Amino acid sequence: MKKFLPSFLLLILLASCTSQKNTDEFIAKTQGRYLFNANEVLEIYFKEKILHAKWRGNDAIELLKVNDSSFYMKALNEKIIFTSTPEMHIELAEKKEHKGVLYYFKKMHVDEKTPNEYFEAQQFDKALQAYKLIQKQDSLSPIIRQHALNSLGYKLIKKNDFDAALEIFKINTILYPENSNVFDSLGEAYFLKKDTVNAIINFKKALSINPENRNSKRFLKKITKNK
């Protein structure tokens, strides 16, 4: 009866027989940032010509070279393949767990950022365009869910970063113009900024979409009472 090595052990065995150093040409073509998903980056860099990656808080992941274009990434338990056509990108080698599914991670332009990175850099217009592009490509993406963006806004409020909270709530109203809750949240942010004029506008907008929005009713009553 024949016994076969698990695929990852076979890859490690192959890697042990391969020089881990890479050519200058390969380094120049492949180093950079790859879009792992719509809001997450896998960064490829080289140290003494050996390939490393930065991913999910780990800044020093060393990948095992299997051949001139393929590497085993233990953190993913995947073999990644660098492919230059039609443009430089990374693919995952097919395996049983995702047979028939192509995973394609495109190389990002030098000045390209994810929506969150644009937002953190206070490039709010670019963040909005990036979020809108995701919505156009995949309206069900968890990255642009109304609830997720709203939660981010309230986290910023807890940090007393009202300006950033305003911006993420504004983005949410543009992405979901028929949602009462997003205008209610924007109204709250304006209220906390002591901008009662814009707070009233947004609470009324929330109520025009959903007349039963209790929070907007409560805030409007509080504002008018104080006046």
Rank of each mutant, 00 (worst) to 15 (best):
K2F: 15
P6S: 10
S7I: 15
F8I: 11
L9M: 14
I12D: 05
I12A: 08
A15R: 03
S16A: 14
C17S: 13
S19D: 15
Q20E: 08
N22I: 06
T23M: 09
D24R: 07
D24F: 11
A28M: 12
K29E: 15
K29A: 15
G32S: 10
G32Q: 11
R33F: 09
R33Y: 07
Y34Q: 04
L35Q: 14
N37V: 12
E43S: 13
E43C: 09
I44C: 05
I44T: 01
K49C: 08
H52T: 05
A53E: 02
A53K: 01
K54Q: 12
N58T: 11
A60D: 15
I61R: 04
I61G: 02
L63H: 02
D68A: 14
F71S: 00
M73R: 02
K74W: 13
K74L: 14
A75V: 14
L76H: 10
E78N: 12
E78S: 07
K79L: 11
K79A: 05
K79Y: 04
I80H: 02
I81L: 11
T83R: 12
P86W: 13
H89A: 07
G100V: 11
L102K: 15
Y103E: 06
Y103Q: 05
Y103T: 08
Y104Q: 11
F105R: 05
K107R: 12
M108R: 10
V110M: 06
D111M: 10
E112S: 06
K113Y: 13
Q123A: 12
Q123Y: 07
D125I: 11
K126H: 07
K126A: 07
A127P: 01
L128T: 05
Q129W: 08
A130N: 05
Y131K: 04
K136N: 12
K136W: 10
D138T: 12
L140M: 10
P142A: 07
P142R: 07
I144E: 02
H147D: 14
A148D: 14
S151M: 10
S151Q: 13
L152H: 09
Y154V: 02
K155F: 08
L156D: 00
L156A: 03
I157Q: 02
K158H: 08
F162M: 05
D163K: 14
A165Y: 00
A165D: 02
E167H: 06
F169W: 07
K170G: 03
I171G: 02
I171C: 01
N172L: 02
T173I: 08
P177T: 04
N179R: 13
S180M: 07
N181K: 12
N181V: 11
V182F: 02
V182G: 00
F183N: 01
F183W: 04
G187R: 00
Y190H: 06
F191N: 00
K194Y: 09
D195Y: 01
T196M: 11
N198S: 04
I200W: 01
I201E: 04
N202A: 01
N202Y: 03
F203D: 00
F203C: 00
A206E: 01
S208I: 03
S208K: 06
P211G: 08
E212V: 04
N213G: 03
R214F: 07
R214G: 09
N215R: 07
S216A: 10
S216N: 03
R218L: 09
F219Y: 03
T224M: 13
T224E: 15
K225M: 08
K227I: 09
K227E: 08
